[in-house]
Simulated assay, not measured.
Amino acid sequence: MQGTYDSDKRKLLSSLCHGAIFFSTTLFSIGVPIVINLLSDDPVVKSNAKESINFHFNVWFWATVIGIPLGIISWITFGLGGILFFPVVALGFALHWGLTIWAILHCLSKPDEPFRYPFIFRVF
């Protein structure tokens, strides 16, 4: 039954779900895949939307787990901790952006196959 769905619409909506994380780090970015999940009847788009929601939760979780201690260390060391841990923060952004770009490219090249992020915990 997957052949009955519009491939271009599937590519657009699936890519929009994953790319929404680039909009901002606020709740607006997670709202896009939530709305698409609620409105779409395409199983691949729904799967990509759920995976994007899970990825949002993972990004927020790890940013909190890593960011709070780094912020405290930076405050205690008068900014020195921020300079010393810059590579950790840069690696986090590189992973976040790299995985998102990989997901978008996957959705555009293999629209009939939902993307799965590696090494994330899934709530949905």
Score class of each variant (00 low, 15 high):
64 T>F: 14
18 H>F: 02
65 V>I: 15
20 A>P: 11
15 S>W: 03
17 C>R: 03
47 S>Q: 15
10 R>N: 00
112 D>C: 05
61 F>T: 15
50 K>C: 06
60 W>R: 11
20 A>R: 07
13 L>H: 07
39 L>T: 15
43 P>G: 09
68 I>T: 09
94 A>N: 06
79 G>M: 08
100 T>F: 05
23 F>V: 15
122 R>P: 11
3 G>E: 14
53 I>G: 07
21 I>K: 06
85 F>A: 08
10 R>C: 00
44 V>Q: 01
22 F>A: 14
25 T>S: 09
98 G>P: 10
25 T>D: 11
4 T>S: 08
79 G>I: 03
41 D>H: 13
84 L>D: 01
110 K>F: 07
52 S>I: 03
77 T>N: 01
99 L>S: 09
7 S>N: 08
123 V>A: 08
98 G>T: 11
46 K>C: 08
34 I>P: 02
87 P>G: 08
88 V>N: 04
104 I>D: 00
103 A>M: 04
123 V>Q: 05
102 W>R: 15
61 F>Q: 10
6 D>G: 00
117 Y>D: 03
121 F>K: 11
59 V>I: 12
64 T>C: 12
52 S>T: 05
104 I>H: 00
118 P>F: 02
84 L>R: 04
107 C>V: 01
2 Q>M: 10
119 F>N: 13
10 R>F: 00
124 F>I: 13
55 F>W: 09
124 F>Q: 06
84 L>T: 06
33 P>R: 02
85 F>L: 12
60 W>N: 12
118 P>L: 01
68 I>W: 10
25 T>Q: 11
107 C>T: 01
2 Q>C: 03
101 I>D: 07
98 G>R: 09
99 L>N: 14
16 L>A: 14
55 F>R: 00
47 S>H: 06
94 A>G: 10
59 V>C: 02
86 F>S: 07
88 V>D: 06
5 Y>Q: 03
17 C>N: 15
103 A>L: 04
31 G>K: 00
50 K>G: 09
34 I>H: 05
74 S>P: 05
114 P>V: 07
14 S>A: 14
102 W>I: 12
63 A>D: 10
103 A>S: 10
103 A>V: 02
41 D>I: 09
120 I>A: 05
36 I>R: 06
38 L>M: 13
55 F>D: 05
91 L>M: 13
7 S>D: 09
78 F>L: 15
43 P>Y: 07
9 K>D: 10
93 F>D: 08
67 G>I: 07
53 I>A: 03
106 H>N: 14
10 R>Y: 00
1 M>D: 13
9 K>N: 09
92 G>R: 08
7 S>V: 05
40 S>T: 13
101 I>L: 12
39 L>C: 11
110 K>T: 14
123 V>R: 07
1 M>A: 13
4 T>C: 05
3 G>T: 11
123 V>T: 08
22 F>T: 13
16 L>E: 10
64 T>N: 07
106 H>W: 15
72 I>A: 08
25 T>K: 05
